[in-house]
């Protein structure tokens, strides 16, 4: 089993962020008025990045999701983006 650990460590190689950045720093609030801060959580095409990629915890993913949807509603963020 320890081998798997080593192997995965090599493979994972920091490709994925696994810590919820909002839990890591309580001062950072999810805010729909701040599209720059939310930009990290959408893909190039403007889709919301899933939790397994972004590393958000469930609670903050819900907040981010709502914030992005609000931001979209007032044209601060795109619904879709041309490639």
């Amino acid at each position: 089993m320890s081998n798997i650990g080593k192997f995965d460590k090599r493979r994972g190689g920091g490709r994925r962020r696994r810590i919820c950045r909002f839990c890591a720093d309580q001062n950072v609030k999810v805010d729909y008025k701040d599209p720059q801060g939310l930009r990290y959580f959408i893909s190039e095409r403007g889709k919301i990045v899933p939790r397994r990629i972004s590393g958000n915890c469930a609670k903050h993913q819900r907040q981010v999701c709502l914030a992005i949807k609000r931001a979209r509603n007032i044209a601060l963020m795109p619904f879709t983006a041309p490639k």
Binding site: M1, I4, G5, D8, G12, R17, I19, V28
Partner: peptide, 22 residues
């Protein structure tokens, strides 16, 4: 700033990562 430090942290977090993937 937090994000960049996050990435540093990530190196440390690897161990927990491993557990997950195991």
């Amino acid at each position: 700033v937090e994000a960049s430090s996050d990435e540093d942290q990530n190196e440390d977090e690897e161990s927990s990562d491993d557990e997950d993937e195991e």
